[in-house]
Design a protein around this nucleic acid. Sequence first.
DNA 1: CGGCATCCGAGTCGATACTG
DNA 2: CAGTATCGACTCGGATGCCG
Lengths: 136, 136
Amino acid sequence: MHAPSSPAPAPTLSLQEQLRRGNLFAEACPSREVLQHVTSRWGVLILVALLDGTHRFSELRRKIGGVSEKMLAQTLQALESDGFVLRTSFPVVPPHVEYSLTPMGTEIAGQVQTLADWIEHNLSTILQTRAARAEA
Amino acid sequence: MHAPSSPAPAPTLSLQEQLRRGNLFAEACPSREVLQHVTSRWGVLILVALLDGTHRFSELRRKIGGVSEKMLAQTLQALESDGFVLRTSFPVVPPHVEYSLTPMGTEIAGQVQTLADWIEHNLSTILQTRAARAEA
DNA sequence: CGGCATCCGAGTCGATACTG
DNA sequence: CAGTATCGACTCGGATGCCG
């Protein structure tokens, strides 16, 4: 990144730059949608949870505190349709469904976990910042 | 979780493990809130945008397609109170306010951008997955 | 067991108007 | 220019009930 003192920070990125990583800033770019699935409230937790390996629906529900069936199913579908999660259904009674990460899902889940780990690691600092701000 | 052949897959993570990175799964953990700020729809874009350096309010508004004033102000406040964004106000007329990343903000913004970059890099694959799924 | 459909309240979001 | 205030639309998310 460029120094704070840069005098002429191109007001808009070059086209090349925008194509490389910037069309995220474009309102209509589909990447925003994918990003939303991945960074959604439950999406993050599901991805990290599945890094531990295959889980059944109810296992996930128990593991992820506070998630409802509806949101779990809904988020799993979104992640599945994006190709991050693999859903395997066994036609037995009672039904048995397993969820696991695809190779692509494993990659992104790793990134997400890195982010989550960072936050947990710095959580005390963050909370102190907030507290200090509240006093002032 | 259970690898097909694993004989003794600890059903729950050890306490140590849970404290190291796992209380994210606890419903009440404040880390979830911080994570929400960072991964929120506009939070992601603001952080990445500010990686390019200091921006004024209206610069951000122009740069981030589709954001409303309200959400921009609101999200900036959240990120500021978490200590990721620094707000600098110059008491002149017309008002002049600059937003930049704190050291901590720079760190996390880097992580977020890595994530965003990964998605954009793999976007075509993702969209193909979706399309294939739509056919079937 | 693993969902889907429906309903409904609470919160979020965006457009507009107004203030310092 | 940089917000805040207000309001309506809309979405999110939980609870319930039903079906494979």
